[in-house]
Amino acid sequence: MSTTAPSPVGTGQTAHFDPSIAHLTHVPRRHYGRWIASALILAAFALVVKAFAEGQIDWAVVGQFFTAQSIISGLGNTIIMTVCAMALGITLGVLFAIMVMSPNPVLKGVAVFYIWFFRGTPLLLQLLLWFNLALVFPRIGIPGLFEARMVDVMTPFVATLLGLGINQGAYTAEVVRSGILSVDAGQTEAAKAIGMTRLTTLRRIVLPQAMRVIIPPVGNEVISMVKLTSIASVIGFAEVLRNAQTVYYANARVIELLIVSAGWYLIIVTLLSIGQHFLERYFAKGTGRRSRPAMRPAVEG
């Protein structure tokens, strides 16, 4: 081993400056690791593509069924159910978020119970409960006004709508509540000071500002809802996956039809993500994150 002390790294070299190096060209660091990683990933990707191209998949069948009547009508049902269930979920979510934050102990209790129950049980179980409600209540109605058999009312569509929408409401209530909490208390005080009642304050001042916080997670939930509609296939709701299954039970092209379904889900989700981006921009107004030309934070008096 050497007996010399380690040479002082910094101090020794800063002793003499060489101004002439100011003209030298700067060469960026080479990222060899990235090149190697890219090459490996490309190779792996090529293998996967090759495997699928040579595998037992008849791509012609995929193309043929992509726009088949039954798939398109299932797609329509998926979209309708997403819109309806989400509309119900958001309505219930706002309602129950307001109830949870209400000073009225009865309203608060009801809302807490709702959130506890519907977040606490599996969605699939809730769907089955709604669909089989006729076992508990064979007939439904208001005495003297109208009456019907529960099995006629609780169609797969209605059961799915109630199951997905009410379950979604319990989650959205928590999202809306956190959005409301994110708005500064000073906003509420200022609204009160100009004579607004509690509900007007909520509608005009608090909720519009809470939207900025609410939109991203709700957008996420819409996307999740598109895919959740597929579990309604178990109670016979004719959404896209259910119809794909019906087709492959007949023609045994299982993977091809699953690929068709996957393709459609990806298309809807992509479109929704784009919509969410524009919605977020709209509700970002006044936060300084939506860039407007010739409008920078002013500093002059």
Binding site: G186, Q187, A190, A193, Q209, G286
Partner: peptide
């Protein structure tokens, strides 16, 4: 009465 706050509390949106 009209009220003016320490932290302005203008409606941000």
């Amino acid at each position: 009465s009209g009220m003016v706050f320490q932290r302005f509390n203008l409606f941000q949106h």
